[in-house]
């Protein structure tokens, strides 16, 4: 236990300030962020759905919870059920085998049902496109509010995308 505490003390706090929106100063984005959280309740909850990705996008979505980005520290949490979620974060070209499951997750999500497509595949089908087993972009299967391109988008882009969407909905 002592060794763990020592390591924690040595490591210190690595969390960086939340990323500013490209066109807004950092303080402003934090203020908007707070307002949005007030609108949505005391926190924002996200359900992530891999609808057929290569798992690269998942690696970067995981990263937003590491100590550097600490998304949870902003009050934004990943939850285990769509019923508890304000937002769906969907990756991949939607495989035909996942299309039905994705529609069900969408149906189970309470309003406001914000949907973010993450990654080139989610935005436009990416390198996989559409075919006998792929429906292509997420918007071909459920309504999408916002798209975050990149292959995969780095964690900062994912956070920036989420914040930008929240602001536009305020």
């Amino acid at each position: 236990m002592l060794r763990i505490l020592k390591r924690i003390a040595q490591t210190g706090i690595r969390t960086e300030p939340a990323p500013p929106r490209a066109d807004l100063p950092h303080e402003e984005s934090l203020r908007i962020h707070r307002e949005l959280l007030a609108i949505l309740g005391d926190a924002l909850t996200i359900r992530q759905v891999d609808a057929g990705s290569c798992n690269g996008c998942e690696l970067e979505i995981h990263a937003v919870n590491n100590p550097y980005y600490n998304l949870e520290g902003l009050g934004i949490r990943f939850v285990a059920s769509p019923r508890h979620a304000d937002m769906l974060l969907v990756t991949g070209p939607v495989s035909r085998h996942m299309a039905e499951a994705l529609r069900r997750v969408y149906a189970a999500t309470p309003e406001p049902k914000l949907v973010v497509a993450v990654g080139d595949c989610g935005c436009d089908g990416g390198i996989f496109g559409e075919g006998y087993a792929s429906c292509g972009r997420v918007a071909n299967v459920i309504p999408v509010d916002f798209e975050i391109p990149g292959c995969p988008p780095p964690p900062l882009e994912i956070m920036r995308g989420i914040l930008t969407l929240l602001r536009s909905k305020a």
Partner: peptide, 26 residues
Amino acid sequence: THKGIERRFTQLPPLEAHRLAGRISG
């Protein structure tokens, strides 16, 4: 997550298909 990767390969030029290979498992 079957999305038809092996069929997709046959639609790509060999000198570009390494990008698809690099997206089989990120």
